[in-house]
Design a protein around this nucleic acid. Structure first.
Length: 276
DNA sequence: ATGGTGGGGTTCCCA
């Protein structure tokens, strides 16, 4: 089973690029981030005509996630749990950043969690170094705690699951061409990385690190200043596998070629092959 | 220190 993740930066602007890549990559499932569309405006029929089941969790203008699957999906849920009072303004969190579904493999089911983790910039700190309540950085860290808690629930089931998407997180210095340029950024600050280590420490495998240990392997390059041409990138899109999924890991790669095509997203797809 | 680019939806927000 080939499963991919792709932050497309707007379905309207990326429908051709996404369609071309889907034809080339031939994935069974892809989780999408930043569809930047309400559900009603997502070009559902276009992808259904290509043989995909389409499940969206959109909102106006920003964020938005989706799952396209050639295999049957069950138990689709939208939104990260425990969002009550977790919005930036103290109201409930209504940002469309998370979707889960179960896909049937040859003989085992796999729970797939597709996520678009908050960027967290600008970093706004109190005098004592703690994040300012209600700031974007505070929202990011609290969202990561909720993600951790959801992962804990899934780990307890001891069944195959994975979390994939745009984590807006650089795990290690080796995951950036210029790590020093990111030290104060929400994507690489110590608090963000500590939360990521805590998430990983529950027993996840970073699939790319296992299957592709090459240097300078990135999933995002800024549109500005010719970043892609200089490979001035960062690795922030990840596939995290629980042990019962990692047992089936055959391959994990980044389709960096997609960034060189016409009208690309600033992210490229990453995928895993599982013998499920 | 600044500005560089892009998407979405309007005259500015987000990345």
């Amino acid at each position: 089973m080939k499963i991919a993740s792709f932050n497309i930066n707007g379905i309207k602007a990326r429908i051709d690029a996404l369609t071309d890549w889907l034809k080339e990559a031939d994935v069974d499932v892809v989780v999408l981030q930043e569809i930047k569309s309400v559900d009603e405006n997502f070009p559902r029929a276009h992808f259904e005509d290509m043989g995909y089941i389409v499940e969206t969790h959109g909102q106006k203008s920003f964020n938005g996630v989706a799952i396209l699957s050639k295999l049957p999906l069950e138990d689709v849920t939208r939104g990260l749990p425990n969002g009550a009072g977790m919005g930036r303004d103290g109201a409930d969190d209504i940002e469309a950043r998370y979707i889960e579904a179960t896909v049937m493999g040859k003989d085992k089911a796999l729970r797939i969690c597709g996520l678009y983790l908050p960027n967290g910039n600008p970093v706004d700190l109190n005098a004592d170094g703690t994040p300012v309540a209600g700031s974007k950085y505070d929202f990011k860290l609290k969202w990561m705690q909720r993600l951790h808690d959801r992962a804990a629930e899934l780990f307890a089931l001891e069944e195959p699951f994975l979390m994939a998407g745009d984590f807006n997180l650089i795990p290690q210095a080796e995951d950036a061409k210029r790590p020093d340029a990111w030290r104060k950024d929400a994507l690489f600050r110590p608090e963000s990385r500590e939360m990521f280590r805590k998430l990983m420490g529950q027993g996840f495998t970073d699939a790319l690190r296992v299957k592709n240990a090459a240097d300078e392997t990135y999933t995002f390059w800024d549109y500005q200043a010719g970043a892609f041409d200089r490979n001035d990138g960062i690795r922030i899109d990840h596939f995290l596998l629980c042990p019962q999924a990692a047992d089936h890991l055959q391959d994990c790669q980044i389709d960096a070629y997609a960034r060189a095509k016409a009208k690309p997203s600033d992210h490229v797809p990453i995928w895993v092959d599982l013998d499920l």
